[in-house]
Amino acid sequence: MVPFVLVSTELGNPTGVVHINVDKADQPLPLTTVFHKLIPLETTPYTLFQTIIGNGYPIALLDEEKILPIGKKITAIGLCQAKDAESVEITSCPEIPFFLSELTKDEMQAQLASRARILFWGSIVLGTLSVCLVGHAIYRGWTRIKLRREARHARQMFEEAEDAIHRDDSSDDDEIGDGQLCVVCLRKRRRAAFIPCGHLVCCSECALTIERTPHPLCPMCRQDIRYMMRVYDS
């Protein structure tokens, strides 16, 4: 048995709860509203019209009160210890999410199991999301490193191609066969191959011009070009 005192902080209990002084704190318990008498309102033409259209016949409350139901069972969960030689005191426990409750023992166990399942699956979902985010960050980092390497390699190839252009200007004075002419300018020898398709169809100057376009495409197969490579005769 746990001694307690019923207290109320507001006159008439308009909030619908009564406070029980247990565990050195006020624990609220809901009250039941009891209607003592119902009386009809004075009828008017408008009231009759409301009744006809189905809104019901209005009535007024003459008296009502809120009481703690007789025989209401409240379960107390907590730490029980002897206060002195004649009394026992029960206090709330931070590890248990119940103290004064209208639930039974089985209902409390079912609610705790439901919360445990929610926490378990929530932790799995959050863990999966965190792993996905870490994997996505690693993938983006690796992609950036790869793009930087390709850009550095492309700059090197670009510098080599520019040097090759100047050399081609002096070496292309000899007679060139039709099968060796650039397909773009039809004046200079084919010196540059496109990667990844590998077609050797342009001179170094035209290949650089194609490579600098927003969407470089091979003039032979129309495949995307990553960069161009200078080809040297043996």
Results as ranks from 00 to 15, higher is better:
52 I>H: 07
145 I>P: 02
101 S>Q: 10
112 L>E: 14
209 T>G: 10
94 P>T: 04
53 I>V: 13
149 R>H: 01
88 V>C: 04
29 L>A: 14
83 K>V: 09
208 L>V: 15
42 E>K: 15
93 C>G: 00
212 R>T: 08
47 T>A: 08
165 I>V: 10
48 L>M: 10
152 R>P: 00
226 R>I: 11
232 Y>G: 00
198 G>R: 05
25 A>E: 07
120 F>V: 11
162 E>K: 15
229 M>A: 12
34 V>A: 04
14 P>K: 11
185 C>M: 04
101 S>A: 05
136 H>G: 13
54 G>D: 01
185 C>D: 01
19 H>P: 06
56 G>M: 08
129 L>M: 04
78 G>W: 01
123 S>W: 01
134 V>M: 01
115 R>I: 10
73 K>C: 07
123 S>M: 01
55 N>L: 08
56 G>P: 07
92 S>I: 06
50 Q>S: 02
74 I>Q: 06
49 F>H: 13
1 M>G: 13
81 Q>D: 12
170 S>R: 11
204 S>V: 09
81 Q>M: 10
192 A>R: 04
205 E>W: 12
127 G>E: 01
46 Y>W: 08
6 L>T: 07
40 P>E: 14
220 M>Y: 03
230 R>F: 09
168 D>G: 08
102 E>I: 03
233 D>A: 12
27 Q>V: 12
21 N>L: 14
35 F>N: 05
127 G>S: 01
39 I>A: 09
4 F>E: 05
230 R>C: 09
76 A>K: 06
152 R>D: 07
202 C>G: 02
10 E>Q: 11
188 K>C: 08
217 L>A: 12
223 Q>K: 11
99 F>K: 13
154 A>E: 03
74 I>D: 00
122 G>C: 00
183 V>A: 06
224 D>S: 15
231 V>M: 13
93 C>T: 07
120 F>P: 03
123 S>F: 00
229 M>Y: 02
221 C>R: 04
104 T>P: 02
192 A>H: 06
50 Q>C: 09
71 G>P: 09
26 D>T: 04
222 R>D: 03
90 I>H: 06
100 L>F: 10
21 N>H: 12
112 L>F: 10
81 Q>K: 13
75 T>G: 06
194 F>T: 07
210 I>T: 09
20 I>P: 01
60 A>L: 12
159 E>H: 08
179 G>W: 12
215 H>F: 11
88 V>F: 07
215 H>Y: 09
125 V>R: 07
89 E>R: 12
176 I>S: 05
142 W>S: 09
31 L>R: 07
109 Q>P: 02
196 P>F: 00
52 I>C: 02
